[in-house]
Every structure is written in C-alpha cells, then in structure tokens.
C-alpha cells in the first residue's frame, strides 16, 4: 500500500518513486495514444521538460477496477503509476442543466488521449491498465490492456 519503495537516485542516494516523480523529476515523456474501438496505438511520443504528477501507490491495488497507467522497468517492477479517468471513451458523460449529469454509451468509440510519465532511466515500457471497456463491465477488475515498449523518444519543442 505504499509508494515508498526505494529506488536508487542518480547520485547514489535512495529516493522514493514519489520523490522521483515529484519536483525532483522535471523531465517527462508525453505519449499521444489513439484508439479505434479496443485497438490502441501510439501516435506520438516526445520528451518534455516538466514535472509529472506524483505517483500513486505502486502496490496494494491488485484486483481493483478503474484505469491507470504504469511505467515498468525491464524486470516488470513498477516505477510509476497514475490513476486517471478512463480516457478510452466507450461512453461519455453528458451534463444537462435540467436533468443533471449522466452517461451515454458511444456508438463508435474513437479518439485520442495523452499520457504523461516521468522520464526515468530504468523505464522499459508503458502499460495501460483498465477495467473492461464496455460500460456495463466498467466496474469489473482491471487488467493490463496494452504494453508499449519504450524506444528513445524525440524531444518536444
């Protein structure tokens, strides 16, 4: 249940994942990912000089539902994890002044979304983890949806 698993920092000191992904981590990799139904592919990948959001706990969430993305090292260890609302929109939220908010299934799910992760030297792959994309199953346990091996990214700007 902790995100304080130690990792070795650049100068030999022990720092936590959260520390590495917080202020101390000021370079990020931004993935632009497209989806057409359940098929996903990386449309763009670039490094950006910016801090990433702090990591969520990298242990203790097994069997949970929802959507999050993870950075894995070559041995499958989780370096970073961030929970977000499911960006693969098989349904959409509608806000109406008279009737309030509600959700409506999408006939042809298709779109793009962006994932921002810290640029960690040990990172080997980006893994998207999701509950089943069908709205009626969205509260079921999440599983790895896709794994994108990391190649040297290009620099933005």
């Amino acid at each position: 249940m902790s995100d304080r698993s130690p990792v070795v920092g650049g100068e030999g000191e022990v720092r936590t994942v959260a520390e590495r992904s917080g202020r101390a981590q000021s370079r990020a990799v931004r993935f632009t990912i497209g989806y057409d139904g359940p098929t996903l592919r990386v449309l763009d990948r670039s490094t950006v000089e910016m801090a990433t959001p702090p990591s969520d706990p990298v242990r203790g969430y097994e069997g949970q539902s929802g959507f999050w993305y993870e950075l894995h090292d070559a041995k499958g260890g989780i370096l970073y994890r961030r929970i977000v609302a499911n960006p693969i929109q098989f349904d959409v939220e509608v806000h109406d002044l008279e009737t309030g908010s509600r959700r409506v299934p999408v006939a042809k799910p298709r779109g793009v979304f962006v994932v921002l992760v810290p640029d960690l030297p040990d990172a080997d792959s980006l893994v998207l983890v999701s509950s089943p994309l069908e709205p009626e199953k969205s509260a079921a346990a999440a599983e790895a949806l896709v794994r994108f091996p990391l190649a040297p990214p290009r620099r933005a700007g």
């Binding site: 069997g63 949970q64 539902s65 929802g66 959507f67 929970i83 609302a85 509260a139 346990a141």
Partner: peptide, 10 residues
C-alpha cells in the same frame, strides 16, 4: 448493486 470490486479511484 455495485460489483464487489474496489474502485481504484480515490
């Protein structure tokens, strides 16, 4: 009835 699966959202 919500499935007996804990949502990861905070």
């Amino acid at each position: 009835q919500h499935p007996t699966v804990e949502p990861t959202q905070p």
